[in-house]
Computed example of a mutant assay.
Amino acid sequence: MRLSRAARGILGGLTVLVLAGIYLPLFVVFVNSFSTSTSLSWPPPGFTLEWWAKAFRSEGALDALVTSVQIASVSTLIALVLGTLISLALQRYSFFGREAVSLLVILPIALPGIITGIALNNAFRTILGVQLSIYTVIVAHATFCIVTVFNNVIARLRRLGTSIEDASADLGAGLWTTFRLITFPQLRSALFAGGLLAFALSFDEIIVTTFTAGAGVKTLPLWILDNLFRPNQAPVVNVIAVVLVIVSIIPIYIAQRIAGAEKIVR
């Protein structure tokens, strides 16, 4: 389909406006992380690296960073195992209620975070009688990280078909051998991309974390929220926000590159 010059100009202008609306606020945060001002002011009166030095010496921020990495790593691992098993079951086997199960697996990512957080908080505290802790946060994050892995893996399984696995079974390979030598190598890049996206999703989650974290659990997004309006903490918060954006962008970029490379190969 060919567009006229006017149509291309309008679409280009709208694209620039949308991207500016998304990324200009991030640019302001980045610039303010070097500002000499101790408040969120614009334009910056001057520039300094003092806040970056303070941020990397802040024990609270560093502890929150470690906690976020731990939660995201374990949640991603759980999501990889369960998401892969669920996708294999739903794609490779037919049974009553399969479509309903598929809907229930995908639903957590579509629900508002506050609804998920309230539901999990009630489940942990009133139904299960479990004290909120880092483990409840991991379980909560895994519920929506599973969806990311599930979507990646089941999409790959649909493209692969079963012919190679059937040939492996005909040659006498068992279920585990076929999975280890045939299925898993073909799913490896999808698992890697799904895991990276799940890690990024868990790392910067704040709403569900707020409802499922115990009193002593402080992730990096929660630390930012707690310190945003404290005196003289705004520049340090800007630095941590920039770090959070970078950490979130890297796995998403790698996952996108993997998906793009696979399309070229195919």
Rank of each mutant, 00 (worst) to 15 (best):
A198Q: 09
L187C: 10
L222R: 08
R230Q: 15
W176E: 07
D226C: 00
I224M: 15
V239K: 05
T178M: 03
G214S: 07
V237D: 08
P185I: 09
L225T: 03
G194W: 02
T177R: 15
F199T: 02
T210I: 09
P185N: 08
L201T: 12
A173I: 06
S202V: 05
L197D: 01
G216P: 04
V208D: 04
T209Y: 05
R188I: 11
T178C: 06
N232W: 10
A200P: 05
A215M: 10
V217Y: 00
G194R: 02
A190P: 11
L191C: 11
P235Q: 07
T209M: 04
L196F: 13
A241R: 07
I240A: 09
F229D: 14
N227T: 06
A200F: 06
F184D: 04
E205Y: 06
A213P: 02
F192Q: 13
Q186C: 09
G174T: 07
G172N: 11
W223S: 00
L225E: 06
Q233S: 15
L220P: 05
G174P: 10
D204H: 00
F192T: 15
W223G: 01
T219S: 13
G195M: 03
G214Q: 05
L191F: 07
L187E: 09
A213L: 02
Q186D: 09
G172S: 08
V217I: 13
T212M: 00
T177Y: 12
R188Y: 13
A193F: 00
R230N: 12
K218H: 10
W176I: 15
I207K: 00
V242I: 13
V243I: 15
F211P: 00
L225I: 06
I182Y: 02
T219H: 03
T178S: 13
A173R: 14
P185S: 10
G174F: 09
G172Y: 09
V237Y: 09
F199A: 06
R188E: 12
W223H: 03
F229Y: 14
V217D: 10
I207H: 07
L181K: 14
L191G: 08
N232R: 14
V236T: 14
L228E: 14
T210W: 09
A173Y: 14
A198L: 03
F184K: 08
V239T: 03
A241Y: 07
L191D: 06
T209R: 04
W223P: 01
A198H: 02
A198F: 05
S202F: 06
T209V: 13
I224D: 05
Q186P: 00
F211N: 04
V217R: 00
D204T: 12
G216V: 01
F184M: 14
N227W: 00
L220W: 03
K218R: 14
L228C: 01
A193R: 04
S202G: 06
L181D: 08
R180P: 01
P221I: 03
L197S: 07
F179C: 02
P185V: 12
P231M: 12
A200K: 00
F203K: 08
A215N: 11
V217L: 05
V237P: 04
